[in-house]
Design a protein around this nucleic acid. Structure first.
Lengths: 228, 228
DNA sequence: ACAAAAGTGTTTATCTTACACCCATGG
DNA sequence: CCATGGGTGTAAGATAAACACTTTTGT
């Protein structure tokens, strides 16, 4: 191998995040996964959509950098944030050599509503994305696979919901993420068996049928960063 | 926040690897996990033991960098290599800001034998390590947890064994990694149910009892890099 | 009273676990 | 022919899936 010019020798480090939220599909009306993308305003892939992210500052931890960039570009403060993977192939950026440490995050609907839908930020249905900059399509596929795998063995679905929620709402999250229907009775047992749900004692009123009990998520189980 | 001096602004990127191999414990004689460490010859933590690794070269992919450094410092060529995690806390290195993308690897005993046990390389029992440089103790704990979790739901144990092996040998790997005993009969069924083991047709001779059948690992299942 | 979803119970199938037992080889 | 691990069979227990049925509200 030969050494290239001095400029090429530099490796720059960026932190990006795949942010998931749930809202109804524009056509079918069913709940589906959405994610915000940022329009690139600089040269490589200018005008294309890309994951929100930015260079790692020397004074910031990795997760802090993800949070900071998220807040700055999309106005979002995720309730769940986990490192996804470090993408660093030599050819993933045309000019520069960039290693991206990618996080994935889950946000609640109220957060999404409060978020600023800036000029260069737009939400997309996660399974119907336009062509993206860099290897970001591959990254999002990987994040989607991780989310769909992890929701089946870890109680993270609550991160899509407000503080208090019904079991039907929790089930709707699972169904939306996994794109299936789940048996209400069995889902209930399975969810309660994790011992992570605490009944608030109150019920949700005004449902035109029997009022469902409200639950709150109780840690005890780790919410972020455990090996698998 | 305030910006520090120009030197502090730089973030350097390193790639390190946690390498696991199996050999008998020096006292009990039982098979246990070992890993090679490198003695630091430079200032931060000089003289202390640390994970093999090095700075990321601009022309190398991440996994290639891990392989390359491994070969150079320990002479090992792993049969399994997977990205573990990116460690990048601001305070993990006293002076510089270093982000380490850490891989974990499994090597076969014949590889270990062929490896050069250089002056500054030494193997340790994975669960009986001395104090290490940087946050490497934490990193190894994380890698150990990942290995022990992953071996239960993924057929990676064969990466510790030669091309052909018996089910008893495969079971011994599981028992050594998980530090338990496993029922031979049930382990057999469970292992064969994965459809990843192909009988070679031959048997291992000279065992002073019934000759066990030899198997070879057949891919079909992904061996590296799938989300969980 | 009826619809509709909440919540409980029950049956069946499937997957683990434990362990009894036969098999094949070296000594 | 005996000891030793290889390999097969099987019964008991635990888990998961399918679905009937009862409960509680709004209309």
């Amino acid at each position: 191998m030969d050494t290239s010019s001095a400029i090429d020798q530099r490796v720059s480090l960026a932190v990006s995040t795949v942010i998931f939220a749930l809202r109804p599909h524009p056509e079918t009306g069913e709940m589906t996964l959405w994610l915000p993308l940022v329009r690139r305003i600089r040269d490589p892939y200018e005008g294309q959509w890309a994951l929100p992210g930015g260079p790692l500052e020397a004074h910031e931890d990795l997760a802090a950098s993800a949070r900071h960039t998220l807040e700055r570009t999309t106005g979002l403060t995720p309730h769940y944030l986990e490192q996804l993977y470090a993408f660093g192939n030599v050819d993933r950026s045309p000019d520069e050599r960039v290693v991206s440490i990618v996080y994935w995050a889950l946000v609640r609907p109220d957060e999404v509503a409060r978020a600023v839908d800036g000029e260069n930020v737009e939400w997309f249905v996660a399974d119907e994305l336009p062509p993206l900059a860099f290897d970001h399509t591959e990254i999002i596929d990987y994040a989607l696979a991780r989310l769909r795998a992890k929701i089946t063995y870890t109680p993270i679905a609550h991160a899509f919901l407000p503080e208090e929620f019904t079991l039907a709402e929790l089930r709707a999250v699972h169904e939306a993420v996994l794109r299936t229907t789940l048996d209400p009775a069995n889902f209930r047992r399975q969810a309660l068996a994790t011992k992570t749900l605490v009944p608030t004692g109150t019920c949700l009123q005004g449902t035109s049928h029997r009022p469902p009990a409200l639950f709150r998520f109780e840690a005890g189980a780790p919410s972020t960063e455990e090996p698998r």
